[in-house]
Measured scan of single mutants.
Amino acid sequence: HEITLHINGRRVKLRFRDEKAAEILKEAAKKGLDEEELKKLAEELWR
């Protein structure tokens, strides 16, 4: 699955395995994680 989040006016595509991962990524984006941090988090969730 993929999700596209808008971060600092940019579109960031993240891959994720399940809905739980999608929710975690959305929450992290709301908390203000930047693009690099979100990509790292997405990679961690993928494993």
Rank of each mutant, 00 (worst) to 15 (best):
I24G: 03
E19I: 08
L45I: 05
D18M: 02
D34I: 11
T4E: 15
L38M: 13
T4R: 04
I7D: 01
V12Q: 02
I3H: 02
H1D: 10
A29W: 13
A42M: 05
G9V: 01
K20W: 13
G9T: 02
V12S: 01
A28P: 00
A29F: 11
V12R: 01
A42R: 01
K30F: 10
L25I: 11
W46L: 05
L45R: 01
W46P: 01
H6T: 13
L41W: 04
D18T: 12
L38W: 03
L5F: 07
K30E: 12
E23Y: 06
L25G: 02
A42L: 05
T4M: 09
G9S: 03
E44L: 13
N8A: 08
L45F: 04
N8G: 08
R17N: 10
L38S: 01
R15D: 03
R15N: 05
A22W: 08
E44R: 08
G32E: 04
A28W: 09
L33C: 06
R11K: 15
K20E: 11
F16K: 03
L38A: 02
R15I: 08
L41H: 01
L33G: 08
E36I: 10
R15L: 06
W46F: 06
R11G: 14
A22K: 15
E44S: 09
R47C: 10
K13A: 06
E19L: 11
F16Y: 15
A21N: 08
E43F: 06
D18E: 07
H1K: 09
K39S: 08
F16V: 15
H6V: 15
K40Q: 14
L14F: 06
A29M: 07
I7C: 04
L14S: 01
L25V: 07
E43Y: 06
E43R: 05
R15M: 08
H6D: 14
A21R: 02
A22C: 13
L25W: 06
E27D: 12
K13V: 15
E36M: 13
K26W: 10
A42T: 03
E35N: 05
K31W: 08
T4D: 09
I3V: 08
A29H: 13
A28S: 08
V12I: 13
D34P: 14
K31P: 01
L5G: 00
D34Y: 07
I3W: 01
R15S: 03
E36H: 14
F16G: 05
L45D: 01
E36A: 10
F16R: 02
H6N: 14
L38Q: 01
L14E: 00
G9M: 01
I24L: 12
E35D: 07
L45C: 02
K13G: 03
V12C: 03
T4H: 14
W46V: 03
E2Y: 14
L33V: 13
K20D: 10
E44Y: 12
L33Q: 07
